[in-house]
Design a protein around this nucleic acid. Sequence first.
DNA 1: CAGTGAGCGAGCTTCCGCTTGACTT
Length: 786
Amino acid sequence: MQKKLVIVESPAKAKTIEKFLGKDYQVLSSYGHIRDLKAKEFSVDIEHDYTPQYVIPADKRKVVAELKKASAGAEEVLLASDEDREGEAIAWHLAETLGLEPEKTQRIVFHEITKNAILHALNHPRSININLVNAQQARRVLDRMVGFEVSPILWRKVKPALSAGRVQSVAVRLLVEREREIQQFVSEASYRVTAHFLLSDGQTLLKTELNRRLKNREEARDFLQFCRTAEFVVDDISTKPFRKSPPPPFTTSTLQQEAARKLGFSVSQTMIVAQRLYESGCITYMRTDSLNLSDLALGASRETITGTYGEKYYRFRKYQTKSKGAQEAHEAIRPTDMSAPEIHGSVQDKKLYDLIYKRTLACQMADAELERTTITIGIGGKKEKFTATGEVIQFDGFLHVYMESVDEDAEKEQENGLLPPVALNETPGLSEMTAVERFTQRPPRYTEATLVRRLEELGIGRPSTYAPTIQTIQNREYVVRGDRPGKERTYGILALKDGQITSADKTEVVGADRNKLLPTDIGIVVNDFLVDYFPDVMDYNFTASVEKEFDAIAEGELAWTRALDKFYKFFHPIVEATSAVKTVHKVGERQVGIDPQSGEPVFVKIGRYGPIAQIGQGSPDNKDAPKPRFASLMKGQSIETITLEETLKLFDLPRSAGEFEGDEITVGLGRFGPYIRFRDKFISIPKTLNPHTISDEEAIRLIREKRAREAERIIKQFEEEPGLEVLNGRYGAYIACQGVNYRIPKDMKPDELTLEACRKIIELSPTKTGKSRKTGKRNEKGAVSK
DNA sequence: CAGTGAGCGAGCTTCCGCTTGACTT
């Protein structure tokens, strides 16, 4: 008997739906888009109304063949891709590619995977909305125009294999501009005064803070001086109730942010784990911007909350999706089964599931009710007051299961919990008062997760692209994830104790950053170039404004080719003009000065392999002219800020560092930093030593140390199997076999291992499930992760 | 995770959004 064929986007979804539908239905998956513009060609016919040239990518041929076969034998085909622009386009491409007859083809949509929703969808079929499809085509073609016309300009003017795009270039811009704000930031100092008062019981201390910051040290000193003899009185004790509401359920971006803060996951890590949870049926779809929860989920949450915590903890809530450009094709991210607080799986799986479970529960729970008490202490003869605030939870509500984390950047003054009992008009004694110099804080650097949040706020990118975009800007080396050391600064501190005022200067390290996104020289140069020549595309509102056009297309108010024509007629001339600009110098090139030795100019710029310094211009016509000399910049140096002196130093290497045992030692700079070379062996120079100033003795010492390590390296070798060795590495003993390394179980002694024992370890070791490390591809350099 | 170590005039790159897989006669 002929079945009805339902086509959805995701195979996991197909499996679930098949269970809901009877055996009259076959459910298959398209695995996303099945057609696209050619990967390596422009594929848009500018001359003929911007006709896109679509192809079926090689990795989709098999799926398409299967779908073709299944649809040919089906009684009816139901296109059930997502209810958004991309989903509509997928349905259209399917109809075109599979050659579906209109009379036996229908379009259905549901945005939650529940039996009711699906049955409802089956009863309300429609046809493909071509306006929505055209909005997607416009989006696709515009992105191709921007990407494929601007990127080649970068290849010529900056460096090969770079890229530009509507989303990635703006992401880099955010980082570059934030970095400049940080550079230009001037902090302002003020004195924060705190006082500890001794209450009437003669024991309890009340910690308070002055309600005003003092301008400078003089003012602080005067203030403390005054307080030496001042009288203090408890002016006011007030208690105010307030409430806290739970955060909304997770979307892709909030899940990424919270998993980064609470679990330390990278954005891509979160998505990999979430994908696993989705495929095993534990959670709903993980790429979504919707805050909607199905009635089924709401009911189950209610049951769980009232059953576990009582009626009092429950409160029905509906959340409105507010992010720009949200397309509501799915539900929010939630557990599929609210009665399962735990799941089987890896530690990571469990942690992320736990987070999703609790967040989902919390969003249907009652407000927390708190009380904030403020004690105010007046100073006789002054209008300033000291205050102490304490918060007490009267009813925990949703806080019982879930507390949202905040970014650690905000250096929050800690709030006291419960305050000690104090009487109005009590006159506490001053135990100790301090005035500490504090500074306004520079803006924080972005993390992967905070960048995603910003992009979402601006409506740039989609849930399915946040993680890949962040990968791309790192692959292009526009951005690195890394640390920045803090700066030391001194601050003043004044203390009043036992009637004595003391003052001191202390130092602290501030502004240290770990695992933040940092723009590279390449990122900065490319960004400045693009902002200069393509200000409209680089505008933070560019996406939002083209989205308005796409909406008009979707509503049938605007022809998609007309919208593209308008954009291209404006955009392409800029591309032409920019390409035509003849520059003697490369983009981003800067002359830092004149080399005093040769009298030649000294430049820094982006070279084929990254930032480089150059002395002299050379002359292609004159072979006798002196050739330019090159030297790479060191890690942490920037072509924006490097000085002439620092640049010239780069040319000191390689240099000789004396002789050892009759052979010369040279000091050089390699891909991985400074090194010593001795008889064709390379030894890294530790960060504590400077390659420019390293002495002959220090170099010899490093060689000796290296030899010692070398001698200790081989723990065991076996005659029977020369390819297998027990070695001593940076992280202890390991077994090396045919280029692969294996860890040795902790309970075994490396020097006592037999060949059989080694073979057994190798056999038992879990084979890497991930992709092999040797990817044959040339372009993906595999971001240097630490 | 476990060692690596140039060069700057020749090989081809790139976009954004959907979605996971990874060979037979």
